[in-house]
Design a protein around this nucleic acid. Structure first.
Length: 733
DNA sequence: ATACGAACTTAGTATTCCGCAC
DNA sequence: GTGCGGAATACTAAGTTCGTAT
C-alpha cells in the first residue's frame, strides 16, 4: 500500500511529471500497480485489492470461480498485504514476441464511409506542450520501459516507514522550471522511492510501532504526567487504537468473495439507506458585505447573490479569466436575476465582487486558524454526518457509501477548453432525486417539506440515489464506496478478464497482424486501431457530440491532424508521431516506431483527407468492441489497457527487484515499475500550486548545505595548514 | 445500423489530515 | 507549538460499455 507521489522534472522541459501511483479500483490502469484503491477511498479496498492481486498472476490465466475462491481465501489467510497488480509488462517487448496462434476470428461487417470529415477548426489546445526531451523520455520509456531517466539524481529519502509510501522526486536536470506558465507539467503517476540513507529511522519507527502495540489496551486519554511525555504517549495510544480498530474492522470485513454470486444481473436482495445528504440552503451575505456595479451599490436578490458568490469565490482561479467561463457564467447568472437586476447588470467587467471575495478569503483564513476545539467540533460534526448518512445496509451488511452528499451548486468546472465551463450548476432538490432501495426497507424520508422525485426498487442496479445534472444533462449517482462488495466484485471481474486476455492475447495479436493486410479497409482500420490500443494503451475513443464537451479523442476518434508519419526519424524507421488531447484534456505526445504494415496503412488512411477528418473513418468503438467480443467473451477495448498496465507492472517488478534488496530498494523498484505504468498510460497531472515554492525551499536548503560544505572544506584546509605550520615550528624549535 | 441514454469505471483536482523538523 | 509537505480522502468530471429504441 505504499505509494508515493512523485514529482518528476524533465530537464529542459520545464515540465513536471508527477507520477502517481495507480489507483486500483478506480482505474484499472491507472497506475496499474499497486496504487491501491485506497488512495481514493478507504484503505480497506486496498487490502482487498492486494489480495486479489496476489491472485492475479498474469501467469495463470484460467481461473475458474472456484479458483478464485480458493485464491482469495489463500491470500486472505495470508493476511492481506499485497496489492493487486494490474498491469504488467513491457509492452513493446511482449509485442516483439512472435505470435503464432491463429484464432478463428469473426469479421464484422464493414461499413461504408462514415467518413464525414469534421472540421475541427480548433487546433488542439493543449494543456501544454512538452518538449522534446520529455517526448523522448516518454517514448523511450514507453517503448522500453527500462529506460529510466536519471532518477537517482535527486532522491531524497524521506521516511522509511515501512508502511508509508515514499515519494521520490526526481529531477533530471537543469532548467526545469522553464516557463512557469508552461505548466505543462505532466504528472505521471509515479511513485518514487527513495533511497533511504537512514535505516535508523526505520528502526525508530519499528520500535514505535512496537510500543504502540504494547500500549494498545490503554485508555486513549491518559492526560496525566509530564506534558511532553503525556502527549507523546497519547499520540501513541491513539495510534495503537487506530491500528486496533483497523484490525477489528478487518476481522469484521464482509467476505463476500467467499459467497455465491447472484445471477441474472441481480445486484442485491436488500438495500436500505437514509437517502442522500443535502447541502444547507444558501444564507445571505451579511449586511456589511456589498456588491457594486459600475461603482454603484446594488443589493442583489438571494438567487442572484448566491451565484455572484460562486463567482467571487473563484476569483483566484484561472477559470475566471477565461472568456468562455466568464461568458457562460454571466449568461447563467443573468438567468437568476430579477428583471430589475438584469436591467442594471449588463457587463461582467463592471461588476465589483471584491467585498464578497474578501469575505470569502477571511472565512477560509478563519477556518484555518480556528482553535483546536473548534476544529474538533467540525470534525465531530462531519463524523456524525458520516455515521448518519454515510452507510447503508446491503444484504445484511453495513456498507460505506462513496458519495452520500448531493453535489452542491456552483459553477461548472469542465476541464480543458470545455465549452460549458462557468455555467451554473444548479442546486439539487429532493424533488430532483430518485431513490433506489428495497421495498421492504425503511424508505428514506425526504427533507422536511419536500418529496422525492421517485422511489424505486431496482435491484439490478447498484445506485442508491440519482439525479440529472443541469449543465450537461447527465445522470449522477450515489453509489457505494470502492471497498464495498458491489465495487469490489466488479473490480475483481475486471482483473479476471484481463487475466483471461493474457491467455489469448497472442492469438489476438496474430489476428490483427493478419488483418493489417485485409482487403477490406474497415478491417484494416480495425487492425491498426487495435494495434495502437494494444501497443500504446490508448483508450477506445468514443465519438462525442461536438460543442458539448472539450475536443478530446481516443483511438477510434483520432483525426488525421493528430498523427504525423515519419518514414525515418532519429535513426528509426516508420515512426508515428502522436499529438492529441485525451481524456481530461491531457496531452498525449509520443513518437513510436511501428511496423511497416501499420505505417503503410496509416498512409493509406490519410490519403485524400483533411486534417480534421477521422483517421479511422470506417471504424467506431462499437464495431471494434463487437469484434473483440467475438474473439473473447467479455473482451472490450479497455481491457487491453488494464492488461497491458498490469503486465507492465509485473514485468517491471520482476526485472527491477532483487530478492536480496532491502525495503527501500524494493520501494524504489516498485516506484519505478509504477512509473513505467504511468508512462504507458499517460497518467499526468498538474503540479501542485505549492510546487514552485517547495522547489525553491529545497534549492535553498541545498545551497545552504553547499555553502556549509565549502566553508567546512576551507576550514579543514586551513586547519591542515595550521597544523603543518605548527608542526614545522615545532620541528624547528 | 444507429442513436441514445443508463450505468459504471476511470481520473484529475481540491481539501483535509498527519507526521516531522525546527 | 508551528508550519511545511506529503499522504489520504473527498469530490466530481470524463470516459467506456451495453441495452434498447428508432
Amino acid at each position: 500500500m505504499s505509494h508515493i507521489l512523485i514529482l518528476v522534472l524533465f530537464e529542459k522541459v520545464s515540465i513536471l511529471h508527477l507520477l502517481r501511483p495507480v489507483s486500483s479500483s478506480n482505474d484499472s490502469v491507472k497506475g496499474g500497480s499497486l496504487y491501491l484503491e485506497q488512495q481514493r477511498h478507504s484503505d480497506k479496498p486496498a487490502f482487498q485489492k492486494l489480495d486479489r492481486i496476489a491472485a492475479f498472476k498474469m501467469g495463470d490465466t484460467q481461473t475458474s470461480s472456484k479458483d478464485k475462491e480458493v485464491k482469495a481465501k489463500e491470500s486472505k489467510d495470508k493476511g492481506f498485504g499485497k496489492e493487486e497488480f494490474r498491469a504488467g509488462g513491457d509492452v513493446s517487448k511482449s509485442k516483439k514476441v512472435q505470435r503464432n496462434s491463429t484464432l478463428g476470428n469473426t469479421e464484422g461487417a464493414e461499413k461504408e464511409g462514415k467518413g464525414i470529415s469534421r472540421k475541427k477548426k480548433e487546433k488542439l489546445t493543449k494543456r501544454e506542450n512538452p518538449d522534446a526531451d520529455l517526448e523522448d523520455f516518454v517514448r523511450a520509456a514507453q517503448i522500453q520501459v527500462k529506460v529510466e531517466p536519471e532518477e537517482e539524481d535527486f532522491c531524497i529519502n524521506k521516511k522509511d516507514k515501512v508502511k508509508k509510501r515514499l515519494r521520490e522526486q526526481e529531477e533530471p536536470g537543469g532548467s526545469l522550471l522553464e516557463s512557469a506558465k508552461k505548466k505543462k507539467k505532466v504528472k505521471m503517476e509515479v511513485e518514487e522511492a527513495e533511497q533511504e540513507p537512514e535505516k535508523q529511522r526505520k528502526k525508530k519507527k519499528e520500535s514505535k510501532v512496537k510500543a504502540k502495540k504494547e500500549q494498545e489496551g490503554r485508555p486513549v486519554s491518559a492526560r496525566e504526567g509530564g506534558k511532553h511525555k503525556k502527549s507523546k504517549e497519547e499520540v501513541e495510544a491513539a495510534k495503537a487504537l487506530k491500528i486496533k480498530k483497523k484490525e477489528e474492522e478487518e476481522l469484521q470485513r464482509w467476505r463476500w468473495w467467499e459467497e455465491e454470486k447472484y445471477e441474472d444481473g441481480i445486484k442485491w436482495k436488500f438495500l436500505e439507506h437514509r437517502g442522500p445528504w443535502f447541502p444547507a440552503e444558501y444564507q445571505r451575505l451579511p449586511d456589511n458585505v456589498k456588491f457594486y456595479y459600475d461603482g454603484k451599490l446594488v443589493t442583489l436578490s438571494s438567487a442572484a447573490e448566491e451565484v455572484a458568490v460562486f463567482f467571487a469565490q473563484m476569483l483566484d482561479h484561472e477559470y475566471t479569466t477565461k472568456e468562455v467561463f466568464r461568458n457562460n457564467f454571466f449568461s447563467d447568472w443573468r438567468k437568476e436575476m430579477t428583471l430589475e437586476e438584469k436591467m442594471i447588470i449588463t457587463d461582467l467587467n463592471k461588476c465589483d465582487f471584491s467585498e464578497i471575495y474578501k469575505m470569502h478569503k477571511e472565512k477560509v483564513e478563519a477556518r484555518k486558524n480556528q482553535g483546536k476545539e473548534e476544529k474538533q467540533k467540525t470534525k465531530d460534526a462531519n463524523q456524525k454526518l458520516l455515521e448518519e448518512y454515510g452507510y447503508c445496509t446491503l444484504d445484511h451488511h453495513r456498507e460505506r457509501i462513496g458519495n452520500f452528499k448531493i453535489e452542491p451548486p456552483g459553477l461548472f468546472r469542465g476541464r480543458g477548453d470545455h465549452p460549458k465551463q462557468g455555467m451554473l450548476k444548479k442546486r439539487i432538490q429532493p424533488e430532483d432525486v430518485i431513490i433506489n432501495c428495497s421495498k421492504d426497507s425503511k424508505i428514506p424520508q425526504p427533507p422536511l417539506g419536500h418529496q422525492w422525485k421517485e422511489v424505486r426498487c431496482d435491484n439490478t442496479v447498484t445506485w442508491l440515489a440519482s439525479w440529472t445534472e443541469n449543465v450537461q444533462g447527465l445522470c449522477k449517482y450515489v453509489m457505494l464506496n470502492a471497498n464495498s462488495k458491489l465495487k469490489g466484485e466488479k473490480d475483481w471481474e475486471k482483473y479476471e478478464i484481463a487475466r483471461k486476455l493474457k491467455s489469448c492475447v497472442e492469438t489476438i495479436r496474430t489476428q490483427y497482424q493478419a488483418d493489417l493486410k485485409s482487403k477490406q479497409m474497415g478491417i484494416r482500420q480495425r487492425a491498426v486501431a487495435l494495434y495502437f490500443i494494444d501497443k500504446l494503451a490508448l483508450r477506445a475513443g468514443n465519438e462525442k457530440e461536438e460543442g458539448e464537451t472539450a475536443d478530446t479523442v481516443g483511438c477510434c476518434s483520432l483525426r488525421v491532424e493528430h498523427i504525423s508519419l515519419h518514414p525515418e526519424l532519429d535513426g528509426e524507421k516508420y515512426v508515428v508521431e502522436f499529438d492529441f488531447l485525451g481524456k481530461d484534456c491531457i496531452r498525449y505526445y509520443n513518437k513510436v516506431p511501428v511496423e511497416k504494415a501499420v505505417f503503410k496503412n496509416l498512409k493509406l488512411f490519410m490519403e485524400d483527407k483533411q486534417p480534421g477528418d477521422d483517421l479511422f473513418d470506417r471504424l467506431n468503438t462499437a464495431m471494434l468492441n463487437k469484434h473483440l467480443h467475438s474473439l473473447m467473451a467479455g473482451l472490450t477495448a479497455k481491457v487491453f489497457r488494464t492488461y497491458n498496465a498490469s503486465i507492465t507492472l509485473q514485468q517491471q517488478l520482476k526485472e527491477l527487484t532483487n530478492a536480496l534488496d532491502n525495503i527501500p530498494e524494493k520501494i524504489l523498484s516498485y516506484n519505478r515499475a509504477n512509473r513505467a505504468v504511468a508512462i504507458l498510460c499517460n497518467h499526468q497531472r498538474a503540479p501542485p500550486k505549492t510546487f514552485e515554492q517547495s522547489m525553491a525551499n529545497l534549492q535553498a536548503k541545498i545551497d545552504n548545505r553547499k555553502e556549509q560544505l565549502s566553508l567546512a572544506k576551507k576550514e579543514l584546509k586551513q586547519a591542515k595548514k595550521d597544523a603543518k605550520d605548527h608542526a614545522d615550528d615545532k620541528l624547528l624549535a
